[in-house]
Design a protein around this nucleic acid. Sequence first.
DNA 1: ATTACTATTCTACGAGTAT
DNA 2: TATACTCGTAGAATAGTAA
Lengths: 237, 237
Amino acid sequence: MKKPKNKEEIEISDYLNLLIAIGKMGGIRRPVFSTTSELGRTVGISQQSASRKLTKLENSNYIVRNYKQRGNTIKITPIGVAALEHVFTDLWMILSAEGREISEKIVIKGTVCTGMGEGAYYMSQKEYLNQFASLLEFEPYPGTLNLQLLEDSSLRNFERLLRSPSKFIKEFTKEGRRFGKVFVWPTYLLIGNRKISAALIHPDRTHHNNQIEIIAKEHIKTTYEIKDGDELELILQ
Amino acid sequence: MKKPKNKEEIEISDYLNLLIAIGKMGGIRRPVFSTTSELGRTVGISQQSASRKLTKLENSNYIVRNYKQRGNTIKITPIGVAALEHVFTDLWMILSAEGREISEKIVIKGTVCTGMGEGAYYMSQKEYLNQFASLLEFEPYPGTLNLQLLEDSSLRNFERLLRSPSKFIKEFTKEGRRFGKVFVWPTYLLIGNRKISAALIHPDRTHHNNQIEIIAKEHIKTTYEIKDGDELELILQ
DNA sequence: ATTACTATTCTACGAGTAT
DNA sequence: TATACTCGTAGAATAGTAA
């Protein structure tokens, strides 16, 4: 029988080592098998403490686990991943800040331009659209907004973004044609003083030029009266 | 092995929030001014706790600070930055892995050299030997193999290792002489295509030079016909 | 083997306060 | 104001052990 989940507030840093240890086993992508003794040994605490901490992580919905005969299968939940990503972002921000100012947010700035129409073609495939919808908080408009990156800092942030954690949609084949994997980073698009939920998408983590593609719920250009050459900012979450 | 000192050990995760808060103020690049009350408020602890934690961070060389009339100027030291980077790298690794096994091998490379014979002296104490045996999968030979680290990457990995979770053997007193705490990291020693279970031992998490000490089941030099100057690799688990 | 309970030890927190 | 001490206490960690 499932135990009742009493929502509990925990301080992530008290559990960071344990979560990282589980993550290193692969617990972010799939359930991994371990025991409280092994985990305790790994992070330098007792079996009992590991047990207690696992219980707390479970009650706070940071992990789910199934007890097997000799141990647990443990998987970090999206909530747990989000907590880890939050720490990651903080560290990224302060470790990569150059010069004096630490900006509260990581920003990618660019000017609106017109792409080759490929974005619209791909985004018109319902397999892509459905997957994007399941990853994001919105159903994207079947087209992309292209931004040309100008400043070095934006390019660097983009490169860094490519190496940072992301969701992605799976490749699929349709009518003999292969549609590849696409990585997705949820962001906000700053338009005037409005903050629009959006996502930066990119097919490849290892290559890029200075142009990026963005999807959002609406067709940005018409909905917000944006035209080529306008400068927009993307705020990473 | 150097005579172990009674130096203050801290667990980075207990101080992560505070270090991140200081980092957000810019404390990685320059000394920043703050008070214990302000820092406490920022991370949700009391002024007293912030004060105590700052003192510990200082004693562990994670920060330096100067007391002014109404607060401190605080700067995170390279050691502190390395600790933050270590957490960052861990998170980066596990959050960016795509369905694959996490298997980034961390390697420390060095050339065999002859130590001062202290290692053999310490390792000849049965209290040490017994404790090592209980922590490791083997009963160590009562002596150490010394490696001189040459490459920057090896030194960096060693520094990182020092800040990572470890087992340790407890200090003890014998015939009026104090034998200190020693930290232990199980590793593998690569000799040709053989992978020997070994352990890196070090008396101090906060200080090091470019020489490391390794223990294994056998006397490495005679068993594997190793001589001074030979280059060996240590693979961290 | 495990997990995780209870009892006990111990550490870390914050209140009060000296400087 | 500051920092940082002492100290009572809450809760975290571990030992012992049941299931």
